[in-house]
Amino acid sequence: MKYFSAGHGACPGCGLPIAVKNVLQVLDGKCFVVNSTGCLEIISSQYGKSAWGVPYIHSLFENAAPVAAGIEAALKALGRKDEGHVVVFAGDGATADIGFGCLSGVMDRNHDIIYICLDNEAYQNTGHQQSGLTPLGEATTTTPVGKMMPGKLKNKKDMVSIAVAHGIPYVATSSSGFPADIRRKVKRALEFEGTKYIQIHSPCVTGWGVDGKGGVIAAKLAVETGLYPLVEFEYGKLTRVRKIKDRKPVEEYLKMQRRFRHLFKHPMGKQIIEELQRIADENTRRYGLDVKRK
């Protein structure tokens, strides 16, 4: 692959490069990448050790979306739009928290960019603090487990609905556990003019507490339990979902990761697990995920 190189510094089994290389593959390198501060930036853009084979810029943690909007506006003004798509790669913290207002403005103005949120469900680059996309029950350094607390007390912010509510043409979720799904959705996104928001569940082996292959195993389970539904919206309308054949109980996903393991012995754990199962069931109902048996 000519667009992203081996030798980058991600932990073995990290989901970020899986997502990135598959996105770049679909774009065939014809893109301008804007990256917010976070793990991807650190593992790929140290001076003299860049992994990027496409034009790349990192500015700040919070402003990737408007930097991309600026590039898009400039390409338009210069009549150079045909040179490539403007693509943002931003973490969940950058997207749902610190860059949230900036992103909202860009979606509101409907700049012609692809915004990829790499959702590893916490501020991983600074050592696993909770973000707006950290799920219920996860132990992070800012939602520690103790007598009082069973991990995070609130579930993930529904960024997908928030993006849809902006009236942008295309919103989708995908997963580093399903690279073919990533490729298909990026391809689809290219057919729309305006802001495209794709949120990719991306395992962090270090923060989630799994071994090298465990990240991909967890990412697959997140989808197979209904906790991370893979959905697509076009102009606000749900157009496609990835169906689940034999939906697995959430315990299967939770017990394999250190970030959730306390739930199996904490006095409030049972209640949290039940609530997570309820969330998976609700996702299944809302998006019609289960394959109906005849």
Binding site: K2, S5, A6, G7, H8, G9, P12, S44, S45, Y47, G48, K49, S50, A51, W52, G53, V54, G212
Partner: peptide, 18 residues
Amino acid sequence: GAISKPMEAKKIKTGDWG
């Protein structure tokens, strides 16, 4: 200024990590 050449990560042989 801080502009890197493409694909320079290739220099970093990570094969001894595992």
